[in-house]
Amino acid sequence: MSASPSPSPVSSLVSRLRAAGCVFAEEEAELLLAAAGSPTELASMLERRVHGLPLEHVVGWAGFRGLRIAVDPGVFVPRRRTEFLVEQAVALTPPGAVAVDLCCGSGALGAALAAAVEGVELYAADLDPAAVRCARRNLPAERVYEGDLFAPLPTELRGRVQLLLANVPYVPTGEIGLLPSEAREYEARVALDGGADGLDVLRRVAAAAPGWLAPGGHLLFETGERQTEHAVAAVRRSGLAARVATCEERYATVVIATRPATAVDAAPRAGEATSR
């Protein structure tokens, strides 16, 4: 009687990944096999994954709007739902526009915008040194700055930014513990924690944004559905018009705030309705 055939490398990987609770075990197994340079490296990557390290940190990259974005350990992993934010930005960005990716993390949003819109003059900034090092691998390194929000950006950008992407942290501090372990244990807290109600960083961005946006320029950010009303109020207090775009399929809520094109229109109108 012939011996039973040994399980294939893929099936062995799938079994281990499934046992660890990986929902997309087959896809993950294929990615691990493709990324590993040797059986020893594959075994090491598998162990890190089954012990909870995000797949993107294990293989070193994340897929985002058709791009392969380098993602280093500890850096926020770009979410697929945030592709909706980029889609809204692309629709508003003319060729050659000046754009800023604030709280840029890996730089995924800026990279996706630059890939979709010809000639974008892109700048990026983040407070986290690890994120800045990672973003400099995905974006022109000389235009990625380390520091708090707008502070490190070149001052000559003031009043010239046509598109401001701000992927601000918006998880309320008290809800950090409810996040999946991949996020709360392996991503920088500064990329997740938005303060008591999740909107602390957004309020700071909204307050400063009018001084950086060009007339008619746009600020776009993602927020939680329950936070939308307060997020819209924050940008309107800064004199920006606001509307909301949603994508039920991706559970994404995006606020699009616009600096009025003329000073006459700068003050928010009483009772102005939020459009969806």
Rank of each mutant, 00 (worst) to 15 (best):
S8K: 01
L149Y: 06
G37R: 09
I176T: 08
L178A: 14
T173L: 12
Y251D: 15
L139I: 11
P94R: 14
V161C: 00
D193Q: 09
W212F: 04
E248G: 14
E56I: 01
M1A: 13
A29T: 02
A108R: 02
L102R: 10
G271N: 11
G107I: 11
T82G: 02
A97I: 13
F84C: 01
R80L: 10
V86A: 03
G60W: 09
L149D: 01
Y251I: 10
E182V: 14
P268A: 04
Y186W: 15
F24M: 14
E26V: 10
T274V: 15
G37E: 14
A241T: 13
S4R: 14
F221Y: 11
R143F: 08
R81D: 11
A261G: 02
L219A: 03
P7C: 09
G21H: 03
S8I: 08
G195T: 01
P7N: 10
V132I: 01
V117R: 01
L179Q: 02
L92R: 11
V254C: 13
S238V: 03
P180E: 01
A19S: 08
E222L: 06
Q162C: 02
R136E: 07
A115L: 05
E175Q: 15
L67K: 00
Y123R: 08
W212R: 04
A3K: 14
A135D: 04
P260R: 15
H230C: 06
V254N: 04
A115G: 12
S12P: 00
A267Y: 07
L202H: 03
P39M: 07
N138H: 06
A124H: 07
A207R: 15
G159A: 07
